[in-house]
Every structure is written in C-alpha cells, then in structure tokens.
Nucleic acid binder design. Structure first.
Lengths: 401, 401
DNA sequence: GCAGCATGGGAAAACGTTCTCCGGAAACTT
DNA sequence: AAGTTTCCGGAGAACGTTTTCCCATGCTGC
C-alpha cells in the first residue's frame, strides 16, 4: 500500500530568531570574548564583524588551545588542570578553570579517544530488542554504564548469528572499550564471540556460550525453577508438566534440567511430562492443546511468553486457572502482570545483572587467561500471582534466594 | 619500548590469512559508508583449523603506515586506495590491497573521525525503552542506520526531561553526527532539543516538540483515528466513547482531536464522552469502570495499553466483547495480538518511520533554517481483530505477527 | 656553596587518519 | 618544440587530546 505520505511542512515562518529576553538559566554562549581576540582563523569563515547575534549554528568548537591562549598558559597545563592527571598550582587551576568555563570549553571525546586509546564506549549486542525480556535489561545496562560515563552502542542482530558476527566486527572496528553480549545461539555464536573476547573485555549476558569463552552473568535458572516447584508443591500441586524450549540455548537447557531434577521429588512420573518447542506465545498455545488432555494440575513454562500462550489456550479449553490447573512462567516480563489471571513467574534480578555486568567490564586486568573467567549467577525471585493461587490468597509473595 | 608491532616483516611469513578466491572485480568504494566491509579477516575467527592461532592475541593494531611500508608506497596513497577518495594507478591499487589484506588492516574509526570531523555515529534518545511501542521502532532504526554504516548510541531517559537534556549533552560531547530523538515531553523537552538542533541534524520521532524546532516524522494520528471510526461505523457501532491521555503530548492531543472531529459525524453527542488519564494499563482499567455504566457500544482507546486495561476490566464487569461493545487500541504493540480477544488497533508504519527518519538525517544541507523544517506524516494501517468484530468475521485484515 | 629533590610548567611528540599542496612525468595541445 | 593539461604519487600539515621529556625554580641537607 502506498498511501502517499501527508507531507506537510510546518510553517513557522514568522518568528525566526526570537527568544532573546528570557534565557537566564542558559549557559555561557561559548563564542567570543575580548580575551581571545584570535579565534579560529582556520576554518571559521564567518569571522564577520558584529556582536554575534546568536546564530550559534556552526560555531567552531573551543579547543584546549583556545583555553590555553585565554588563560595565558600552555595546552599541557590546561589539559592537566581539566583532566586532573597531575597536580597544578592553585592559582593556575583557578585561571584555567575560569577561562574554560567562560569560553564554554567542551572536551572533544574523539581526540581524547585517539590519544588515550580508549573511547569510553561499550557495545551492546543482542539478539532481538523486540524480545520483551530485553528492554528492561537494556534499560538497566544503559543506566549502569552511563553512570560511569560510558556510552552504549546498540546492535540488534535479528536473531541471526551472521548478523551478530558482523555487528561485533563493526563495534570492534569502532574501538569499543568492551562488549556486552547476549549471544544469539550458544553454539553458532561461539566462534565470533571467542574471537572478540580475545580483543576486548567481553561479558556474556543472560545466556552462555560454551565454557571458558568469556565472562558471563546470568540468572540462576535452577534456583528459579526450584522456587516455582517449591511453591507449587506447597500449594498442593502434584501432577506438574513442563512446557519448554528445544535447542541448546542455556536458558532452555538449564530450566528443563532443573524441572526434571526438581519434579522427580514431587512425582516420579513428572519428569517425563515435558513438551519442547520454542520461546513463543504460539508454542504456548499449541502446547496447551497437547498437554491438557492428561489433566496436569500445574503447567510450568520455561518463560512468560510460553506461559501466556498456554494460559490463554487453557482457558479457551475451559480449564479453570488456577483452580484446576496452575500456570507459571519465567522472567517476569511486563506481559506477565497483564495476563488474566496474572502470571505467577520468576523475576530476573535485572538491575543486579546489569550492575554485575558493568562491574565485570571494568575489571582492568587482562582477562585473556581462560582460567580467570568468571561466571556469575544471580538469585531470582518468585512472584506469586493469580495464575497459581486464587486471587484472595495471592498476596504477591516474594521469596529471595 | 613495547613489543614490536607488525611493522617491518612483511614477507617470508606463511601468512595466516588465506588469500583465497581474490575477487578482483571489486570496485573502489566511493562512499565511506561501506568501507571496512572487506577486511573482515582482522577479527574474523582465524581460519578454523589454521596451523597456528594464539598469535592473534592483543597485537597492536595495523596502521596505514604499516600497510604503506609493506606495499612500498606512501601513507597518502594507501589512504586513497582504501578510501577511494581519488583515483590511483591500477598496479598500485593491487599491491596496496594485497598488503592491507595480508596484514589484516582495519581502519581506525577514531582517527578517521578526528580528522574528518564525522564519527559515523547517531545518538538515539528515547523516554523509556521499556515502553512497549519503542523496541520495534528501535529495531528498525538500528537496521536502517547500520545499513548505511552508522552506529547507534542509545540513551534511555527514564521519562525525565532533565536526564534527557543530560543525555543529549553527553552525545553532543561525543560528537555524534546527528540525533534521533523521541522527546519525553512536548513542552519541557523543547529547550534542550532546540539547542541540540542548532548543533547537529536532529530528527524528532513519534512525538512533536513545538513548531519549527526540528524536523520530525510521525504517524498520521488523525488518519489512524479516522480508520478506526470508519471501521466502527461500518460495523454498526453508534455510541462510541474515547479513553485517552491528558497532557500536551502530541500523540495524546492529536488522537483526541481526531476522535472528536470524527465521532461528531457518527453521533453528535459522542465527542462529549471522553475520559482522559495517561497511557497506561491501569488507567485503561479505571476508565472502563467510569465508562461502562453509560453502555457505549465502542470504547476507542488512545493506545494499546489503555485498550488492554479497558478490555480486561470490561470483561471482568461482564461485558461481552465484541458483541456488546467493541474495544480498539492504537500502535499495535505485541501485546495487542495477545489480548483476549485480540485487539483491533492501528498499526504504525514502523519500518517507514525509521526509513524516513534515516533519510532526513542524511540530508546534508544546513537545516538550521527553520523555514526548511520538514514534518513528515506517515499513513498507518488498520488491523482488525477480535475485539471489534466476532471471531468468525475477523479475517485479520493483515497477517499479524 | 653544592648535590639532591621536589614542584610547577612548557615544548613537542605521539595517536592514525584525511587532505592540501607540490612536483614530476606522460599525454595532449598549439 | 614548447606550452598545457592530466595523472600519480609523496611530504607533511592538520584534527584536539594526552603524555613524555625537559627546564626552571626554590628548597633541603651536608
């Protein structure tokens, strides 16, 4: 459909450069001052006279050299004052600071990066930003990283290992200081990840990528699954079944293994009742159809998407949730709280994951030594909602590790 | 003195990189957007199975100078060959290319940025990545931008204009080539946005920020609302009501205005039935309580979150959806297809929004002139699902995701 | 008085590109 | 044959920092 764009150009012709009176909280307009009568002869063509009526369009950047000139000392000194790399006389510090502020000096990160060989930038590479679990993780990572003054370069791989490798390469070419990576595939991502890890600090997030490849931080899937099983057992469920995902992704494998281990305690035949598909709502719906005939009293899903699909389909099939059957998810994505009834699930400690990842990244020592790889597992939290216990009893219990 | 670099020793080594299948038909890249593409060898997993690997550790970067030395010509020539900025003799091109590939040369983006005063980086600043409408937009933007060789710096503002201003400033300090911005607040973001727009190309996305401040691209909210109203009228609804958001955000205002304009045609008293809160599920639930007593036959919501809440609550109140009352949303976030019944909604042309934004960014001309601001409005698409028509009739106008 | 040593500051060399000059040679003009 | 243009290629100057030397001082301790 090529419905034409309603391409209207907002008019706004009358007021062009107004707004001169009420700009009191504005910072100093970096351009001219009587001290530095000699500015940017180089490429500032509009050295036209006049008191600069505020056309701050392409004002040439103020450089260290300008500040040096204005404060009567050398570039080196100015750098030292501003970067604090070496003690400088109190008096000098004062003049330099003043000049810098007066001129509105802003350091050029690119030049700094070139010289100091560190860009203050980390690349964040993830499979699909549209996976509903990722946004909150991205958010926390962004906050954690920005808090230490680093900027985040984002890449979305479209769930494709080839794209992933390309993005990693692009980031490396841009000399990121480090990489944060949620691998697309445990196996097919390995090669590119290992290669990248040899060049910059790299932390794997949420999913693993084979042993010894890189540092990694993730939720303790086994503990999470145990929380779910304990809760279900405590509320009298005896015939659980598991709806998970096939494949080698660590989350899929670990959650399934943990279910099988834990469910055996509940019911010796339970570990057999396992259906595997993928991490999607559609699979959740399909799995419900396959599972419901055997009348389980708990459907434990490997993530919230599956759970949402299963829940929806179960109700369509006439099942009473949670009366007849409980449904649980994993991750606590926003959707979980919105389902009807709201999903009991395992909340990932997103903030801590981000903090831990940031911490690992900052570790200076050359972590090229495979022996020093760290794998951090963080404790999740059970969030009990209506899908596993009747509403009146669902007091949103939270149980930590 | 550090470990000697790759500098001198050119030949004699059994080069690690197999020069397999040299494609000599390769054109000299004329634009800088796809340059380094061909040098994947540098970071690519060193030929799985290659004889010696470990040597690829933290080797000092190969520079232009190294390539020049190895190929027996000057740095300038190498630069020209690789960047394709000026024609170079065929013979020279060949030797240089060979040397570059053999040494695994990868251009240093930082140095390039410093010299050419362009980083190939755009900053993407948004209110909250956790807002479910944004991830797909971010995804499209990332793809569009990466496709032209630009990297995306991401910032999440936590819905706070102050943080937003700080992030914008940080990006400017990192000399992004341009800014893509979804303003937090139409009014409170304005100052920072205007200041930034004076320094780099800036495109507003999804939401406006006052007239003439910057280029902007967004969905045509009025057209979207009209699609909804037409659909509802065509299916016999006669007593619509609107649940929207208060405030000055452009989406809120435009959607409400469009409803009021369009609904008057349907029912003269309809424009009065308007409830305003915010763009949240909670408000949707609350609004359902307020609205249901007057028994509307259609609840038109300003976005999908509101609609999801309203839908959920209406059903809890015993309403028959869609038999008794239709519910519609706006945006087509993933949640919309998952609701029960699935939400009829207006799908934003996310891909086109991203493409258009990218296009506007690349416009070279000094867009400082307020008269040349562009405001692009893209046509949305109606997605009919179960919340507005009985299932058997809901032939999902478009294949949902 | 002189070696020894902090301390504060400057000149200039990197960092790895791109790009502007410039010069020489070859290829056309006149 | 002498100019004139075109074509290739090199030297080297930026770009804006950080950092390494180095040189003044002024002070201590002998």
């Amino acid at each position: 459909m090529d419905v034409p764009v309603v391409n209207g150009s907002i008019s706004g012709q009358p007021h062009v450069f107004g707004t001169k009176g009420r700009r009191d909280d504005q910072e100093i307009p970096l351009s001219w001052d009587n001290d530095c009568q000699e500015f940017k002869g180089a490429y500032a063509p509009s050295g036209s006279g006049g008191p600069d009526e505020g056309s701050r369009e392409t004002v040439a950047e103020v450089t260290l050299r300008d500040v040096a000139l204005a404060s009567g000392c050398s570039v080196a000194t100015v750098s030292r004052v501003l970067a604090g790399t070496r003690p400088v006389g109190a008096e000098t510090v004062r003049t330099v600071r003043a000049a810098a502020e007066r001129l509105g000096y802003r350091p050029n990160h690119v030049a700094r990066a070139l010289r100091s060989r560190t860009t203050g930038t980390v690349g964040l590479v993830l499979p699909q930003i549209t996976n509903p679990f990722f946004p909150s993780l991205v958010r926390e990572l962004e906050h954690a990283l920005h808090a230490e003054g680093r900027a985040v370069l984002l890449a979305d791989c479209d769930d494709d290992p080839v794209t992933e490798a390309a993005r990693i390469g692009a980031f490396l070419g841009r000399q990121v200081d480090a990489l944060l990576l949620i691998p697309v595939d445990e196996r097919r991502s390995r090669e590119a990840v290992a290669a990248a890890a040899a060049q910059v600090p790299l932390v794997l997030l949420d999913r693993g990528c084979g042993p010894g490849v890189a540092d990694s931080v993730a939720v303790d899937n086994a503990a999470g699954m145990a929380l779910v099983l304990d809760h279900l057992a405590a509320t009298g469920r005896r015939r659980p079944c598991f709806v998970g995902a096939a494949g080698t992704a660590s989350a899929a494998v670990e959650r399934r293994a943990a279910y099988e281990a834990g469910a055996a305690a509940l019911d010796p035949t339970a570990p057999g009742r396992v259906e595997l598909g993928d991490f999607s709502v559609a699979w959740g719906r399909a799995a419900a159809d396959r599972v419901w005939p055997s009348r389980p009293d708990a459907v434990i899903c490997a993530n919230d998407l599956i759970a949402a699909g299963a829940l929806q389909r179960l109700r369509q099939l006439g099942a009473d949730v949670p009366g007849e059957v409980a449904v649980t998810g994993f991750d606590d994505i926003p959707l979980a709280g919105l389902a009807d009834p709201a999903l009991t699930t395992v909340r990932q400690p997103v903030g801590e994951l981000a903090a831990e990842a940031a911490r690992l990244l900052s570790r200076r020592p050359a972590a090229a030594d495979p022996a020093s790889r760290h794998t951090v597992r963080l404790a999740p939290q059970l969030v009990v909602r209506g899908s596993s216990v009747p509403v009146d009893a669902a007091a949103d219990a939270t149980a930590g590790g």
